[in-house]
Computed example of a mutant assay.
Amino acid sequence: MGLKTRHITLVFLLAYFKAHTQAHDVMPQPKLDYIAPITNKITARLFFTNTYNSFTINDRDSNLSIKMEPNKQNKIGASLSYRFITASFAFAPNFLAENKDNENSKLFNLNLRTYFGKWMQTLDIFNEKGFYLKHASANVYFSNLKAFKIGGATSYIVNENLSFKAIVPQHEKQLKSAGSFIPRVLYYVTKYDIDDAPTATKLDMYSYDIAFAPSYYYNVVPFNNLLLSAGVSAGIGLNHTHSKSNGNKENLTSLLTEFNFRTSTSYNINNAYFGAHYSYLIINHNTDRSSYVNDNIPFLQVFLGIV
């Protein structure tokens, strides 16, 4: 028996509109032979999404490695966008194989992106309940294991001829190939909560990440209406972890490293478009003096839309 998860996300970013308009007026405009703006039009899309936040805990003194993987869910949905207003609906249907055994689990995620001239702001939220702990041949499900993550990145697109809006959310069209160096600052807060009565284990842990993660993206237009895009970032920063387990407290500040790869492809025919996005974010840091964590966020979306 499966648990169907539905969520409706209605995001109003009208407060950003005035700031964006002012920034747009003072920033140099892209050359029209590189970018064609799509303004005053409603963008509608259908999509399939698979994304989650998993963790791999590695012990420094042994070869022990435990993977914490949430009870994953595939979602399908639809969205409408107009300038800075987006309304979306997505759900995890039982007829998809991966959703058939997700009772008492939760996987909610929200991804937002907005632009202010050359500045780009992203926001990510993951709320997960129910994890599999995998080690060697063992695969144990903990229904009361929870993780909540919120954060994002602030980026600056140096070359105005590169259009990120042509990638997400298709509000511009890249006419000629262009690339750009994109410095960015990445930050996340993650809360872990384990309350397992049979093993008398109770853990509350907060993890704070901040990193400078410069990136480079390139949009390739091999021929009219086809866009291929790829980008990579490598960052370094700090993590601070505060944990409390069965009455014992520990604080640790350690070095953090970040790696992110993203690729996209889209094709438009008149007012219709389709394509796919894929990205993989890895954040590595210590959690205590004897272990370190690989914090992983894969993301896949396949979409079909009209403008």
Rank of each mutant, 00 (worst) to 15 (best):
L10D: 11
F261C: 06
F116R: 01
S79I: 03
N296E: 06
H7V: 12
V140L: 05
L32R: 14
I66V: 15
S137V: 10
D288E: 09
Y267I: 13
K146W: 00
K191A: 03
N219A: 07
K202E: 14
D204I: 07
Y280D: 01
A23S: 13
N224M: 08
V185Y: 01
A211W: 00
N74Y: 12
F91S: 11
S79A: 15
S233N: 01
E258D: 10
I297M: 08
A136E: 14
G235C: 08
T122E: 08
Y278F: 15
F142E: 00
P28H: 09
K106M: 10
Y292C: 09
I306E: 01
T154F: 06
I297A: 00
I297Y: 00
H7E: 14
P70M: 00
P70Y: 01
S105W: 05
Q170Y: 11
S266C: 09
A92M: 05
S243K: 10
D33Y: 09
F259Q: 03
L145Y: 07
F126E: 03
K173T: 13
N296G: 05
I167H: 01
N111D: 13
V221T: 10
S279N: 11
K129L: 11
E98I: 14
L203D: 04
Q73K: 15
F181S: 02
V11G: 06
Y52T: 05
I76A: 04
F212H: 11
R45V: 06
F95I: 13
